[in-house]
Nucleic acid binder design. Structure first.
Lengths: 231, 231
DNA sequence: CGCGGCTTTGATGTTCATCAAGTAAAGTGG
DNA sequence: CCACTTTACTTGATGAACATCAAAGCCGCG
């Protein structure tokens, strides 16, 4: 179950994150008081789409997915978020309810900060406002960029693109454990589970990757990258 | 050719736009001095991807497309922007160069405002900062939402979705002139020109729409909407 | 032990891009 | 003004890409 942690100070954690660099010390103290730090197990649901936005969500550690139900009740994964980013950026300032569900893909630690406090600090601290803007802009831009890329590729290209994404952007390693089931993998790049498996096997036969269950190793990064760009 | 206009005051124009409601009068005056208002003809290129960001771009009147070249040199349309929105929101605060090209789809009037001035006002005026955040969040969210929707549908659903988008969100009318060629239509929703035509003809045969060149009229909104949601 | 969920492979039919060919409209140069 | 090119649009035919169905193996869990 989700477990509320005896929190470490924001000052220590926040200094590591780009966003909070611009905060004054008393603002950080105020954050300390108003935040909750919660740990989630792999697979645990963090937020449900449609629920009211009360807090600003920061992913301190771990990996989470943003998803949404389609009209025909299928799950659709919008994006996978790396640690040290703010989730829900996309809706927090323009909606009253979360537009996406949030689920932990690995054991993850999240900070929940009262949304009114964040808004207050934004209004009072111009540098902080600029940083939030930069971050929001960057996060949105990445998501859009990835979406456009994925849409315009054929299946082989999509799989390759996603493998390289996990390797380069998330794990910084050619060897990693895929945090998604094959089904989720398909939901993230709009293809059937069967074809996810088929193409992964194809890549294995072609010597591009090695697979052992959810453990994946990229053997030929250059070729895979070519497939990702032109497939 | 693009024509620099004898500009009307920001105060008048801006008061109509949500974003500028929160500005003080002297800030508006400052904007007046720092902005350029330019008119573009249909088809004219406004910005090229890769060029340096010096200005904040506001679409006062008209319609523009955001596009990008794929690695194999094809054009890809990211989004179509309605008037009274800020373009380039997606990159202005996180990059030095524009990530997308901008082209006028109709005769359009755009305002260019020195980016440093905007950043200065954001830092000094908290309410303005909050408004920019809300807008940026909303614009990004819409684009992501549309992209995800389009990706997850089959061709019939995509075409229907886009027709309804133009009818409801852009023209507020069941009758409108499609501002895109069939080819561009395809570039926007990732499908071949031929299939755009084929499916439009199909919709015509089924009595869902009426087509006369680029003039389109939606005859059966409900059915088209069903196709859009479940196709 | 048996059930359900995840994974895998093969077979089948649908959806879609591509190729080819033709028409219409619109600009271009003499 | 007319031949000439170019560009957008349209339809049909073909094959490739892909989803779906079916069946079987695997593993964790009650």
């Amino acid at each position: 179950m989700a477990e509320v942690l005896d929190t470490s100070r924001c000052a220590e954690c926040a200094f590591k994150s780009l966003l909070f660099e611009k905060l004054e010390f008393d603002e950080l103290l105020e954050l300390d008081g108003a935040k909750k730090e919660v740990k989630f197990e792999k697979g645990e649901k963090i937020l449900k789409e449609g629920s009211e936005i009360k807090e600003f969500v920061y992913l301190k550690k771990g990996l989470v997915k943003l998803s949404k139900k389609t009209p025909n009740k299928k799950d659709h994964i919008i994006s996978v978020s790396k640690p040290k980013t703010f989730i829900g950026f996309l809706t927090v300032f323009s909606h009253d309810t979360y537009q996406y569900s949030l689920t932990a893909l690995e054991e993850s630690t999240l900070c929940f900060i009262d949304i009114h406090l964040i808004k207050k600090i934004i209004q009072e601290n111009g540098l902080f406002a600029m940083d939030v803007l930069a971050k929001i802009s960057q996060v949105s831009d990445e998501i859009i960029h990835r979406r456009v890329n994925i849409c315009s590729k054929q299946l082989r290209g999509r799989i390759a693109y996603l493998l390289i994404f996990f390797s380069k952007d998330i794990y910084h390693n050619t060897k990693f454990e895929l945090p998604l089931t094959r089904k989720e993998f398909g939901e993230l790049i709009d293809m059937s589970t069967e074809n996810v498996i088929r193409i992964l096997s194809e890549f294995r036969r072609d010597g591009l990757i090695k697979i052992d269950g959810s453990k994946i190793e990229i053997l030929n990064f250059e070729s895979l990258d070519k497939v990702s760009r032109f497939g």
